[in-house]
Amino acid sequence: MSISSGATAAPRGGAVGSPLLAVDDLQVEFRTGSGVVNAVNGISYTLAQGETLAILGESGSGKSVSAQAIMGILDTPPAHITGGTVVFEGRDLLTLPPEEQRQVRGPGISMIFQDALSALNPVYSVGFQIGEMFRAHQGLSKKDAKRKAVELMDRVRIPAAAQRVNDYPHQFSGGMRQRVMIAMAIALDPKILIADEPTTALDVTVQAQVMDLLKDLQRDTGMGLILITHDLGVVNEVADNVAVMYAGRIVERGTVDDVFSRPAMPYTEGLMTSIPRVEAKGGRLVPISGQPPNLARIPSGCPFHPRCPRRRIGAEAAPGRDCAVDHPPLRLVVPGREAACHYSEEVLGV
């Protein structure tokens, strides 16, 4: 394992060690009264020890649903996992019986959510809730569990942990509650932590504190981190690799450096030109036209084609590569980079 010691930490790019987790062709749909919502349409990725993989995408692109499928916390109905495998420690989590799933996933993979307040139980002290992890999974006594809880609160940098262990969630600020969630998530030393927009609800100064904490914990434990976010800045500052999602699919994947410096997919390109920069006033923004698609009615061919400035349709298209008709699979464009676009070579200029 090669964990470098730069200011931003983490091994950047490429595969690091052997994969901890392999997701292959995962598909999830919601069967609702008004039709089928195709939320996740065949996504695949791997995560290595010590790696931070960012899943980047706009609202409704399927980021959370794909993570919830891996965690086994989707409600069926309405959600149905209609295909794919999630291999962790050599076993496909999706086909294990529920009881075994829990035994494997429980200590091995944990998740933190965007909204820490609603994820915590308001009637129990935070110390009790953190301690519960040890009582339930390791059979510790009440007293030992509490001692462990204080240790963990210290580790996630909650000031005066010993005094605050009996406080209730509402007595903590948003940033402190998110630390409590992180404490619970790392209590059992998971190999993988999935963080679903862990800082989106927080102020930017608190967001920086929490991201810093996550990176330090990752460096100490070597856990793999899947970071779900819509913030390109967060991706750039903390992730090694990035998977860009659009309409329930991964449309581009590679190292953050490569993808952000030279996107191979017009959607990623559009995201980069849409956002203003804090380090310069910059000229006029170049937005992506239109809106993200409704997942109950995903456009034919390339799902991005109605908004794509580079689309080629009909006579303009190369044979078998009509953007309105032919679906572009995620494919290797140049070494280390995959993109789901018929014309990625042109986008990259290779």
Binding site: G6, T8, T205, A208, D231, V256, D257, F260, I275, E279
Partner: peptide, 13 residues
């Protein structure tokens, strides 16, 4: 300002 994550790889760090 120092908390704002920058999105350009060449400015990282």
């Amino acid at each position: 300002l120092s908390s704002v994550p920058l999105h350009e790889p060449h400015l990282r760090g």
